[in-house]
C-alpha cells in the first residue's frame, strides 16, 4: 500500500573550528605593475566557489570591477595560511581577512597618492573604480596604474588577519560560547512510502537556508542542491556496511549515491539576515545545507506510516520490515 506523509527538519549550526581552537585566516593584497590588484590567500577551492566569493569580496572592498582582481590561492610558496576549507569557514573567515587586508591596502594607497598629488593629508581621499581621488576636490586624482608606475620596483602590499571568536567550553559546567556565527536552516518534504516494498519516493522538497548575505546566490543554490542530494543519500541509500573494521561496500554498485533520477526538483529559499561580524554580512553554508534534510525525510516517513526510524540508511528492506513489525505489534 502507498502512504503519503509530510515532514520538516530544522537546524542551527555553529560554523568555524569552535571550542576555543585558534581559527585564523590571513590574506595579502598587493599592487601589481599594470595597476591590477593581487590577492593572496591559502584558502582552498574544492568546488564550493571560494575563489569566486574571494574575488567578489575583494572587488567590493577595493571598489574595482572583478577583472582587476587577480587571485592566487592554495600555493604555500606564495600565499599566507588561511586555514582549512572545512568547518564552513572560508567565506566568513578568509572573506573577513581579505576585507581587512583590502582596507589596510587602501590606506597605503592613500599614503602614496598623498605624495603624488602633493596633499598634506590622506583625509577625504577615496579609493574607487581604480583611482584614488580627493572627495572634496575630485580634480585631484591618480589611477592605480600611475601609482604602480610611480612606485617602480617598490612593492605596495598590505596584510589582513582575522581570528574567529570562540571560547572553550568549561569542562565542569559545559558552559561557553563555542561557535560564532551560527547559521539556520529548514527543510520540508512530502513523500510516498510503498509499505510492501519499502520504497520511498520524494514528491516535493523545500530547503531554506540562512546565509547572512548571499555573496553569490547562484553558488549558494548550488551548495543547497548538493547538500540536499547528499542528505538524501545519507537517509535512504548510503551504507558503508562496516564489518569488523572492513568496508563491505567499496564500490558504487554497492555504496549507492543518488543519481539524477533519485534527486527530485528542489525549491530553494535563501534567507538573508546580515551577520554583523561577517564580510558584508556573509556566513558560510557549506555543511549546514545538508543537516535538516534527513530529519525531514524521517519525520515524513513517520507521518506516512507511523513508524519511527532510528537507524540509517533506511533502505527499502529495512523500511518494509519496520512497517510489517509495526503492523504486527499494532
Amino acid at each position: 500500500m502507498k502512504k503519503r506523509g509530510r515532514g520538516i527538519g530544522l537546524s542551527f549550526y555553529g560554523t568555524g573550528y569552535g571550542n576555543g581552537f585558534p581559527d585564523v585566516s590571513n590574506a595579502w593584497v598587493r599592487l601589481l605593475k599594470d595597476g591590477k590588484i593581487g590577492v593572496y590567500v591559502g584558502g582552498a577551492e574544492v568546488g564550493q566557489g571560494a575563489m569566486t566569493a574571494f574575488v567578489q569580496i575583494a572587488a567590493e572592498a577595493l571598489g574595482v570591477p572583478h577583472d582587476r582582481v587577480l587571485l592566487e590561492i592554495e600555493d604555500t610558496l606564495t600565499t599566507p595560511d588561511s586555514g582549512t576549507a572545512a568547518a564552513t569557514r572560508q567565506t566568513y573567515n578568509t572573506g573577513n581577512a581579505i576585507k581587512i587586508a583590502c582596507e589596510n591596502f587602501k590606506e597605503k594607497l592613500k599614503e602614496v597618492a598623498k605624495d603624488i598629488l602633493n596633499l598634506n593629508s590622506t583625509a577625504a581621499l577615496e579609493v574607487k573604480d581604480g583611482e584614488v581621488y580627493l572627495e572634496i576636490f575630485p580634480q585631484k586624482r591618480v589611477s592605480l596604474e600611475k601609482i604602480a608606475d610611480f612606485l617602480g620596483g617598490n612593492i605596495l602590499e598590505a596584510e589582513g588577519s582575522f581570528t574567529a571568536q570562540t571560547t572553550k567550553l568549561d569542562p565542569e559546567t559545559g558552559q561557553g560560547a563555542p561557535y560564532w556565527p551560527y547559521t539556520f536552516s529548514a527543510c520540508g518534504v512530502e513523500l510516498e512510502v510503498d509499505t510492501i516494498t519499502g520504497q520511498v519516493d520524494i514528491l516535493k522538497a523545500v530547503l531554506v537556508q540562512d546565509v547572512g548575505r548571499a555573496v553569490n546566490p547562484h553558488l549558494v543554490e548550488g551548495q543547497m542542491d548538493g547538500g540536499y542530494a547528499m542528505a538524501l543519500g545519507y537517509a535512504l541509500f548510503e551504507d558503508l556496511n562496516l564489518k569488523r573494521g572492513v568496508m563491505g561496500n567499496r564500490k558504487f554498485s554497492k555504496y549507492l549515491i543518488p543519481t539524477s533520477m533519485d534527486v527530485t526538483e528542489l525549491t530553494k529559499i535563501i534567507v538573508e539576515d546580515p551577520e554583523s561580524t561577517a564580510p558584508y554580512g556573509a556566513k558560510g553554508i557549506g555543511e549546514p545545507v545538508m543537516i535538516p534534510v534527513t530529519p525531514a525525510i524521517l519525520n515524513a516517513i513517520y507521518d506516512a506510516t507511523g513508524v519511527r526510524i532510528t537507524e540509517l540508511p533506511i533502505t527499502p528492506e529495512k523500511l518494509a520490515k519496520a512497517f510489517s513489525d509495526f503492523e504486527k505489534e499494532g
Binding site: 548550488g222 542542491d225 548538493g226 542530494a229 547528499m230 558504487f252 549515491i257 543518488p258 543519481t259 533520477m261
Partner: peptide, 13 residues
C-alpha cells in the same frame, strides 16, 4: 544523465 554520478551538485543545475 543517470549513468553519470555527481557528488557535489545534486544534479539540478
Amino acid at each position: 544523465i543517470s549513468g553519470n554520478l555527481c557528488r557535489c551538485t545534486g544534479y539540478n543545475k
